[in-house]
């Protein structure tokens, strides 16, 4: 019963709303409803530039950002397979060059992985300030990490031996 009462009350309210609106000229209603400031292009929001019929813009073709980048990523990943296997059977103290290459490769691999996440989740197209800020923060961090890995491999036991020692501690 209460549902019926509520429905009829709702109908009445709806009718009143329509009656009030119909007093205003149609052109003004259209303007008020569709052309509002909130429905414009917002860099961080869900609205993109242009209409659905506009083709998406493509970045200028560049092999450095395309096939070369892709091939480098795969070579780096594939290179980590023998390096990881070697790390299990050698010690960083006896093969410091191998340990150094593993350290640099892991940092580059990590950097590419982090960068891919930034491209996916905080793209500059949608986050014009936060996106580039994150990218440059990552670059600076990676440089610092490379210095840290270099310091550790030259002044301490190196990554391979460190992991082996902690694992059996």
């Amino acid at each position: 019963m209460s549902a019926i009462v509520a429905r009829s009350a709702f109908n009445r309210r709806l009718a009143n709303t329509f009656a009030r609106h119909s007093l205003r000229p149609a052109s003004q209603q259209v303007l008020a409803r569709w052309v509002s400031s909130e429905s414009g292009y917002v860099p961080g929001g869900p609205i993109y530039k242009g209409t659905v019929n506009d083709p998406t813009t493509f970045p200028p073709p560049s092999r450095t950002h395309g096939s070369h980048h892709w091939a480098f990523e795969r070579l780096l990943s594939a290179g980590l397979v023998p390096l990881t296997a070697a790390a299990f059977v050698t010690s960083g103290t006896n093969y410091p060059v191998l340990d150094g290459i593993l350290g640099i490769s892991l940092v580059m691999h990590s950097h590419i992985g982090f960068d891919a996440m930034l491209v996916d989740y905080v793209h500059a197209r949608k986050f014009p300030i936060l996106g580039p800020l994150c990218t440059w923060t990552l670059r600076a961090t990676t440089v610092a990490v490379l210095v840290g890995v270099y310091q550790f491999n030259t002044n301490d036991v190196g990554l391979t031996e460190f992991i082996a020692k902690v694992w059996t501690a």
């Binding site: 892991l106 691999h109 990590s110 992985g113 961090t141 610092a144 990490v145 840290g148 550790f152």
Partner: peptide, 16 residues
Amino acid sequence: GAGLSVLLYGYALAYL
């Protein structure tokens, strides 16, 4: 991958 990389980055920065 992110978890392991965060560990590597974190330790390298901490050592630095």
